[in-house]
């Protein structure tokens, strides 16, 4: 009886060793096993939606399953650091948001766009100025006028100090030469809630976040703070059109750790481009109201580096005021 246990454990050990060895078998053609996409935000948001939709759509073109994992924390720095340090074999792909160009300036982690082989930019999310409908101003000009007359009285809710929507507020403040008081929240959703409850005066987050409030008539979106009008609210002007030099947008794309073999890179980039154009992907993006804006790897790298330079200059200045 005593030996039964030993026999069981030994035979199991052998079985596992065989299985383990099989996993180490060399991979000649890419891809041979499951690919992992690391998303830096919790399930339920835009980043997660893009990551999962891309995973679902690209599986078909790569022929292997693609898993999605959420690693949150420190404005995405934890997830991006994980991608940066993972094996450059193509089996780990990261979703990279605008914070890719920001976390270094914020002092969270030593990460810059050059640490990655960027695959493509997928989407852009412009900032927008949203206020309550019952406010004494109904247009952007009236808002600026009000802000000029009452310096510091406008309480602008942001998704956290140093976050992209805080930067949007700061840019607007500079362009309009007014003075805001910033109220940081734990993400954009709580700031919109506070605006709906009348605890603050304005938010500078994305149009998607305020969509249901605007549709219900409680909120009023005054201006888009990006380069172009948003398809969600085609009638809302941009601040640029009105003569204020503000252009802040969040964006997202995909990246590989630096040093991926070029044929692996090409396989992934091709598959992701096909997936990007597939109906399955675009359908989900439409449901979410996500504005697609494709750039290929090279274009994305140039864009991300340009943003990186900008934030390296802007963030330290902005946070020192």
């Amino acid at each position: 009886m005593k030996y039964v246990g030993k026999i069981i454990s030994v035979s199991l050990l052998v079985a596992m060793l065989v299985l383990g060895a099989a996993a180490f078998a060399s991979a000649e053609t890419f891809p041979e096993e499951e690919i992992l996409i690391i998303v830096q935000a919790a399930p339920g948001g835009v980043s997660d939606a893009v990551g999962r939709a891309m995973a679902a759509a690209a599986e078909e073109f790569l022929g292997v399953p693609i898993a999605v994992t959420n690693i949150t924390g420190a404005a995405g720095a934890i997830a991006m650091e994980r991608v940066k340090e993972s094996e450059p074999d193509g089996y780990t792909i990261g979703y990279v948001p605008v914070e890719l160009s920001m976390v270094k300036a914020l002092g969270y982690a030593d990460i810059s766009p050059d640490d990655f082989d960027l695959i493509m930019r997928v989407n852009i999310v412009p900032a927008a100025l949203t206020v309550r409908s019952d406010a004494p101003y109904q247009t952007f000009e009236e808002f600026v006028e009000y802000a000029e007359e009452n310096p510091g009285a406008i309480l602008v809710g942001t998704s956290g100090t140093g976050s992209i929507w805080h930067i949007a507020g700061l840019a607007l403040e500079e362009a309009a030469d007014v003075q805001f008081t910033y109220v940081p929240f734990d993400g954009a959703a709580p700031s919109v809630t506070a605006l709906l409850g009348g605890h603050i005066t304005a938010v500078t987050c994305s149009p998607t976040e305020v969509l249901s409030g605007v549709e219900a008539g409680d909120l009023n979106i005054l201006a888009v703070l990006g380069a172009e009008r948003t398809p969600l609210f085609p009638d809302v002007p941009t601040a640029l059109e009105l003569g204020y030099d503000v252009n802040v947008l969040a964006w997202g794309g995909f990246a590989l750790p630096k040093g991926v073999p070029s044929e692996v890179y090409d396989t992934i980039a091709d598959a992701f481009y096909q997936a990007f154009q597939s109906e399955r992907f675009t359908g989900i993006m439409e449901d979410w109201g996500i504005e697609l804006s494709y750039l290929d790897g090279e274009g994305f790298a140039e864009f991300a580096n340009q943003q990186f330079e900008m934030y390296m200059d802007l963030i330290p200045r902005a946070l020192e005021e």
């Binding site: 919790a42 399930p43 948001g45 959703a189 249901s212 549709e215 989900i284």
Partner: peptide, 16 residues
């Protein structure tokens, strides 16, 4: 937050 995501997948955006 996750449920909201699945509502959107069904083409329904929560709100009034």
């Amino acid at each position: 937050a996750v449920l909201l995501g699945s509502f959107i997948m069904y083409g329904v955006r929560p709100g009034p």
